[in-house]
Every structure is written in C-alpha cells, then in structure tokens.
Design a protein around this nucleic acid. Structure first.
Lengths: 201, 201
DNA sequence: GACCTCGGTTACCGCCAGTAACCTACCGGC
DNA sequence: GCCGGTAGGTTACTGGCGGTAACCGAGGTC
C-alpha cells in the first residue's frame, strides 16, 4: 500500500517519535485543561486520550505543572505573534495602539481556551505576571515614542499597565456578550484611552 | 479567679462554640492559603493549626472549595465596604471615581493576601467574575450619572469594565513597586481615564 | 547475531480530600 | 440526683491522583 498521504502517519505499532508525541500531548492537554480545569484534569486521562500510559507523559513533561506551563507558553507565543504582526503593520503610534488592541481583543474572543489557561492563578501567577509585563512593556514603548521628554518614567509604566489591563478586562466582558461586534468594542476602548494618552505628547 | 478579661476565652477543654470556631478557622485558612496557595494548603494542617482535627473543619465548611470560597467572600465584603464608604463620602461623580479608585488601590496595596485569594483562577473564576461585574456595575452607575442621554448602554458597560480593569492592573503593578506613592499612582490612573470619560458628558 | 537505544508498560508509593462511626462533657427536665 | 439529647470532637478508614522504579521488546547499527 504505502499511500502517499500517509508518509507522516504510519509508525509501526503505537510507537511515535518524541517530538510528534510531544505536540500531540500538548494539544490534547490544552483542551483537557480547558474542559476540566487544572485540578480536574488528570494525567491518567490525558495519557488515555493519547493512547499511551502515564509515564510517557512524565517522560516528556517533568510534571503536571510543567505540562501546564508548556501549554501556557504555547498560547503566549501565539498571542504575541498576532499582536506583534498587527502592530508592525502600522507606523503611526496611535494607529499601532489601535491595531494592537484590536488584535488582542480578536485573540481573546477567538481563543478563550488559551486565555483561560493563561489567567489560571495559583502557582502560575508568576507566569501570568510575565505575560502582562511583557505586554505592558510593548505598550510602554509605543507610548514612549509619542511621549514628551520630561515624562516621569514611572507614570508611563503605570499608564501602560493600565492600558493593557483595560483591554484584558474588556476581553472578559466580551465572553459574556459574544454578540458584541469586536471592531466596535476595540474602538470604544481606544476612544476611552487615547484622550488620556494624548497628555503625554 | 474568673478574670474579667477572660469572659470570652475560657471554654472548658478545647470545646468552643460553632461561630467562634468558624471565625478562627476562616482567619487561619486565609493566611494558610496565602502562604501555600490553594493546592499547597492541606485541610489537615489547617485543622492542626486550629488545634482540632479534620472532620471539625468539614463540619463547618462542606469542602475545601467551600472553605476557600468563604475566605474569598470575606475579602470581597471588606473591599466592597471600603470602596462604598469612600464613594459615599463624595458627591461630584468625578470626585467619586477618584475616591473609589484610591480606595481600591489602597485596599489592594494593603491586602495583597486577600487580593491574591480573589484572583486565584481555576474553579473560582466564576467568583472572580462576580466581583468584577459588581465593581464594574458600581462604576457604570457613576458614569451613567454624568453621561448624556443618548449614550449606547453597551458602550457605558464596556467603558466601566475597562476602568475597573485598569485599576486592577495597576494594583498588580504596585506590588512590584511598593515604593510608589499610592496617592500619586491613583492620580495617574484618574488622569489617564477621566479625559476619555468626559466624552460621555 | 550481539548490543544499544528509544518508546513504552506494569505495578507500585505517598499524600490528601472526604467520610463513617463512635465518644463524651455538658445541659435541661423531671 | 438521675437521664436523655445534643453539640463539639476524635479515630480510623477509603479512593483517587501525582509521581516513580523497574522492566520490556522492536529496530537499527556494527
């Protein structure tokens, strides 16, 4: 036989190369965590869904926390890529902020699973803080471009965190209102924030 | 004997009335959760710290989740009381927003434990959403007072959530910068948000 | 054909949430 | 002064799950 489309798929028995198994497990884990929450998801069930046994999972990810962390990292990378692309597509700082904000809201609206993963507190608060900081840093840089010389750097930082959080908060709101048009909501936030940001110019 | 100050304290043996034990456990639980996180805190240790055994805890709070929920509720009540008092002390809507915001930041800065409890995601996301919604509702009402008639109610709601989240985000920032003067930070946020809010008047 | 490696399995441990059954000091009624 | 009910508490257990040690067998390599 040797069907041409099967070049990736036909490993003998259940045996599968490491990186493939890794990706498979990550994807299954993401949906499992989303379904059952961190505590509710069991490594046993993840293994079962992948058609293997527990120690396989532990071989690839040191611990349940490690596995979860890897899932979160994957989400973060996707989000960062989306935003960064949107921002780079514009040149005027204000347009960049709008574009970045829209990309953020779009991501949140379309990847609730990923977002829920990121904001699952507890031991992962550290990781969440990392995301927020790097995002705020991005915003801060945008603002610094348009800010006057003498601006207090702390004030810029605070404003950047506030802007970031505002978008995040509205993303939460959107899940309760899926009928709301994304572009309009993003616009509302921009309209709310930009007047206050002009103060820096 | 019968020392006058001991009228509250001398129960025979270890036996203590239900509501007293309840309060004691709540307080111990709050600090235990803060120390070890939700998963890391064990009911056994809580019981040990209170000088009792596990089933006592389970008698008063149905489950670990129930206990945690009760801790969160306590924090929420304290926060709501603080903010509500601060807001009621002013009459002009703008001053109310400033006062409420300051009270919020103050609370967050001084009660990190309580706040960490509230934002410990997972199964408790529901509860967290509740807090945010009711807080946003408070802000929305303030804004509605100063908003023009024809304003889109959804836009008001979105803005209220954005404002609330902005303060929350800055609270996170403050823990990393304890040296920052609270009043000034609160002012920075107000200065950032109010220009955009004037749009509604 | 001997050997190594890699993906995988079986069978176990310890910890902890949650529970069933029991125990006993006190209090009110007679 | 006895007696039963109750409220606060204990002992001892179960089940589930994260994590691990030890082993196993199919292929490729020399």
């Amino acid at each position: 036989m040797n069907s041409p489309a099967a070049q990736v798929q036909d490993y003998a028995h259940g045996r599968v190369p490491r990186p493939v198994r890794e990706r498979q497990l990550l994807e299954l884990a993401e949906s499992l965590f989303a379904e059952r929450g961190y505590a509710g998801a069991s490594m046993e069930e993840l293994a079962r869904r992948a058609g293997v046994t527990k120690p396989v999972v532990y071989e690839l990810f040191r611990s349940k926390e490690g596995l979860f962390g890897a899932c979160v990292d994957r989400s973060i990378e996707r989000l960062a890529a989306d935003i960064s692309a949107a921002v780079r597509a514009e040149s005027h700082p204000e347009a960049r902020l709008r574009a970045g904000g829209l990309a953020f809201i779009r991501f949140a609206a379309g990847n609730r699973v990923a977002w829920d993963l990121m904001s699952m507190g507890g031991r992962f608060a550290e990781q969440a803080r990392g995301v927020r900081s790097s995002q705020a840093e991005l915003i801060r840089e945008l603002m610094a471009e348009m800010a006057a010389e003498g601006t207090d750097p702390h004030e810029l930082e605070v404003a950047a965190h506030a802007v970031n959080a505002a978008y995040e908060g509205v993303a939460h709101w959107m899940w309760a209102h899926p009928e709301a048009p994304i572009e309009q909501v993003a616009d509302w936030i921009a309209e709310l924030l930009i007047p206050g940001l002009r103060r820096f110019t």
